[in-house]
Structures are given as structure tokens and as C-alpha cells.
């Protein structure tokens, strides 16, 4: 349908977006790659020459590396399990007929719109603080010793905060998926005497599997790079330093750019592995 003129016009219209994104991707990426092979300490002598793979080796052999990998894994997996399990249950609940459905939906979605620095600080101070936090009040009410959450349970605390932020996202997507389920199928199963648990396991869960996969992949990409929630709560202390936070500290706080850039390259590779799976699903949908 398109003429030759409109084809070249189309290319022209696409050009700004493509050129900008290409530059945004290639320039910093090339610089990171370049720095990762240099011995570059801006505050201590500047660029001191080629370092080969030293930075890559030092990054993974430093004592902070494995704890950071574990911390990242803990947080990402913890949040994924909590948000998907609760998200499925919540989506099922919200799909039921009830009074005031619209308002309940709004209440459930609201945390997603709270900026990360606010949720980090509000949870840290007003809920998890061991003296004046609400949790401490509750613990004392039951005669228990209040917990110093940020110090002794940094993972539980961060997982709680981040899950609270992402549960709405999972719920909303799973709810959208549930609403597209053909209710006749469920009714037929109900008539045939399939108990609720079986209907859930053999009809609803398979129907949701695609949406669950999408939630898992998208959240993984965002969760791998959570930053502000840690920045304002523990600042990486008490063993809560994730890979992202470790790289941030290497690059900006200790200004060891070579080492941090090598870490950055690892992070990019990791994110790309996840991204490939997500892209496949999105790509398939594009054809349909």
C-alpha cells in the first residue's frame, strides 16, 4: 500500500528515535568496555594504562563479590516468590463479585505509584524502627523483644519493602489475564464436580502461565537493578549489598572506575540473559 515516497518519509521519521537510542546504547557501552580494561582511578593518578583482564578477575575474586551475588539472588528470588504467589491469590480474589471492587483495586494498586525513596524511608522509620516503629509497638504489645530489622534482618526488610512496591504490578497483570479466561470452561468443570482446588490447578494456573512468565521476567529485570530502596535504608551495610550497589560503590564512592566497569559488564551480561527470554515472548506476541 505504501508508495516509494512514503517509504523514504517513513525512514526519515524513524531516524531521530533510532539514532538517539543507538547513541545512548553504543557510546556509554563502548566507554564501559574500554574502562573495564584500563587501570583507571580518577582520584588517584587517573588512567594508568592497560590492565588486561585484571579488573574482571579482581571483581569476582574480591571478598565482596559472592556475598553481593547471594544478596542479589536472595532479594530477587524472595520478591519474585512473594509477589507471584500473593499476586495470583489477590488477582483471584479481586476477580470475584463484590461491593466496591473499583475502590479495592485502587487501594491495592496504590503502592506502585509511591516513589522508591519514600517507600524505603517510610518503611524503615515508621514500621521497622526498633524503638518507635509500628512493628516494635506490636512486638511489645505481645510481650516480645522488638527486632532491629534493618540490622539483623536486612534481607527480610528489603524483601518486604520491595515486595510491597511490586505486588500491585503482579496483581494487576495477573488480574488482566484472569479476566480473559473463558468462564464457560470453569463452569463446565464445576458442573462435572471438579473441586475448587482442582479447577484452580488444572484450569486457572495453566491459563495464567504466560502472564506469570511475563511478570517473572519483567520484574527480574527491574529487581536486578533496585537501588534507591537500599540507598536510603541500609546503604549497603549489614550484608545487604547487591551487585548493583557494589558496582555503584566501586564506581562513584571509591572511584575505582576500571574495577567498577568490569562489574558493570558482568551486570550487563546477566541482564541480557534474562532479557533474551523476555524478548522471545514479546516477539511471539508481535507476530500474532
Amino acid at each position: 500500500m505504501a508508495t516509494k515516497a512514503s517509504r523514504s518519509a517513513a525512514r526519515l521519521m524513524m531516524a531521530p528515535a533510532v539514532v538517539l537510542l543507538l547513541g545512548w546504547m553504543l557510546v556509554p557501552l563502548t566507554m564501559t568496555l574500554w574502562f573495564s580494561f584500563r587501570n583507571y582511578l580518577p582520584l588517584r593518578g587517573g588512567d594508568q594504562g592497560f590492565a588486561g583482564f585484571d579488573n574482571y578477575v579482581r571483581f569476582v575474586t574480591s571478598s565482596a563479590f559472592w556475598p553481593a551475588v547471594l544478596a542479589t539472588l536472595f532479594i530477587v528470588v524472595g520478591v519474585l516468590i512473594i509477589t507471584v504467589v500473593l499476586g495470583v491469590l489477590l488477582a483471584l480474589l479481586l476477580d470475584q463479585p463484590m461491593w466496591g471492587q473499583g475502590i479495592v483495586r485502587i487501594l491495592v494498586i496504590a503502592p506502585f505509584f509511591v516513589m522508591p525513596t519514600v517507600s524505603g524511608l517510610v518503611w524503615k522509620n515508621m514500621f521497622l524502627d526498633s524503638v518507635n516503629g509500628l512493628f516494635a509497638h506490636i512486638w511489645r504489645f505481645f510481650g516480645a523483644q522488638p527486632v532491629e530489622w534493618m540490622i539483623h534482618q536486612p534481607f527480610a526488610s528489603i524483601i518486604l519493602i520491595v515486595s510491597w512496591q511490586w505486588l500491585p504490578f503482579a496483581t494487576l497483570i495477573l488480574l488482566t489475564a484472569i479476566q480473559s479466561l473463558d468462564s464457560e470452561q470453569l463452569e463446565a468443570a464445576e458442573m462435572d464436580g471438579a473441586p475448587a482446588l482442582k479447577r484452580f490447578w488444572f484450569i486457572i494456573i495453566p491459563h495464567l502461565s504466560r502472564a506469570i512468565t511475563v511478570v517473572l521476567l519483567i520484574q527480574t529485570i527491574f529487581l536486578l537493578s533496585i537501588f534507591a530502596e537500599i540507598f536510603v535504608t541500609t546503604a549497603g551495610a549489614f550484608g545487604s549489598k547487591t551487585l548493583t550497589y557494589l558496582i555503584f560503590q566501586r564506581v562513584l564512592e571509591s572511584q575505582n572506575v576500571g574495577l567498577g566497569s568490569a562489574g558493570g559488564v558482568y551486570a550487563i551480561i546477566l541482564a541480557n540473559i534474562v532479557a533474551i527470554f523476555l524478548m522471545r515472548i514479546v516477539g511471539k506476541n508481535l507476530d500474532a
Binding site: 524513524m14 528515535a17 533510532v18 537510542l21 545512548w24 546504547m25 557510546v27 556509554p28 557501552l29 566507554m31 564501559t32 574502562f35 529485570i221 536486578l224 537493578s225 537501588f227 548493583t244 558496582i247 555503584f248 564506581v251 562513584l252 572506575v257 567498577g260 566497569s261 558493570g264 559488564v265 551486570a267 550487563i268 546477566l270 541482564a271 541480557n272 534474562v274 532479557a275 523476555l278 524478548m279 514479546v282 516477539g283 508481535l286 507476530d287
Partner: peptide, 24 residues
Amino acid sequence: KDILMWMLSTKMLPAVGVLYPIYL
């Protein structure tokens, strides 16, 4: 389709990986 997918892939780039170049 390739262009769309490629644009999406730039979104997957972890910010911390390019923090110093942008900062510089």
C-alpha cells in the same frame, strides 16, 4: 519488528553498567 525488538533491548541495559560513562 527487528527495530522494535532492538529498541526494547536498550531498555534492558542495567543503568549501573553505564553509570560512569554517563557521569563523566
